[in-house]
Design a protein around this nucleic acid. Structure first.
Length: 276
DNA sequence: CGCACTGTTGAACA
DNA sequence: TTGTTCAACAGTGC
């Protein structure tokens, strides 16, 4: 389900609902979801209060009063819901946090790809590989033009898998990558060292703007995404290429085409996005 | 039945 | 050594 805008939408929802809540007990119907020691996971969470929820890239970071952090990655279809205590778990509920205020925070994951682990706060930057290697957040201050130009020039890899690689920059996934490449008029198979300085500046601006816009619209709902309130995003109505194969390009009218790039479905405009 | 799918990772390979 | 590619993870829906 989620790229950065969706994870940020979940973070905000969770903050509104469970920041300040205390955990009484934890049940784990699907132990594989827990990467760290399971017994410690359950034990250490008892009595802890969720002080706040941060985000790094697509990772959610529940900051606990116990000086520990619950690191949670939703991968493809993970989602959280908050229900009255004792509510029946869903078919794919993997973890249940029983809260002291008679509510249950449930983690549900249809495809069972999501993972969570408990670490000492601050240690996530070393212990969680995805975070340790993660590139800058896609913001004006963190993602500088100099940095982007430098790493693009360094490799000779196709631009699409490059942008999907969280080690280069955080936050983009398959949907928004197709969108920003279309906006930037760059063919998804363009080699990174073939991207001109002008295109780099433009691409950077589009990445930052697009992810911020999508976040304002509470993300894109494809298939299963909903926030903790069970609400869907609205950004799917704003997408220009993803899911629009065969439909006319909104810039030139040419029918959009779909190809496979680095094992991922990729939609683009064959007239606006010319391979060099 | 076959294929596609929002993401990441570790092994294989150059 | 370093960078890149690709299968695998698991379930649902078309």
């Amino acid at each position: 389900m989620p790229e950065l805008p969706e994870v940020e939408t979940v973070r905000r929802g969770l903050t509104a609902l469970v920041a300040g809540a205390q955990i009484n007990k934890v049940q784990v119907p699907y132990p594989k979801a827990i990467v760290s020691d399971l017994a410690e996971f359950k034990e250490d969470l008892i009595g802890a209060t969720i002080e706040k929820i941060d985000r790094r890239g697509k990772f959610l970071l529940f900051r606990l009063s116990s000086d520990q952090t619950l690191v949670s990655h939703l991968r493809m279809e993970g989602q959280y819901s908050v229900e009255p205590a004792g509510a029946t778990p869903h078919k794919h509920t993997e973890v249940i946090f029983n809260l002291a205020d008679d509510r249950d925070l449930m983690y549900n994951d249809t495809r069972r790809f999501g993972r969570m682990q408990l670490v000492k706060t601050g240690q996530e930057n070393q212990v969680v590989p995805g975070i340790a290697k993660m590139g800058p957040e896609p913001t004006e201050s963190d993602l500088t033009e100099e940095y982007l130009a430098k790493i693009l020039a360094k490799g000779h890899r196709m631009i699409k898998p490059f942008l999907l690689d969280q080690a280069n920059l955080a936050g983009l996934g398959n949907i928004y990558t197709d969108e920003v490449l279309w906006q930037s008029k760059i063919h998804p198979e363009t080699l990174t060292n073939q991207v001109s300085a002008t295109e780099v500046a433009n691409l950077r601006e589009n990445i930052i703007t697009e992810l911020a816009r999508a976040t304002e619209h509470h993300g894109t709902t494809v298939h299963s995404f909903s926030n903790v309130f069970g609400e869907v995003g609205e950004f799917q109505n704003e997408l220009d290429v993803y899911g629009r194969v065969g439909e006319p390009c909104r810039r030139c009218g040419e029918p959009l085409v779909k190809i496979k790039v680095a094992q991922r479905g990729t939609t683009y405009c064959p007239k606006c996005q010319i391979k060099k």
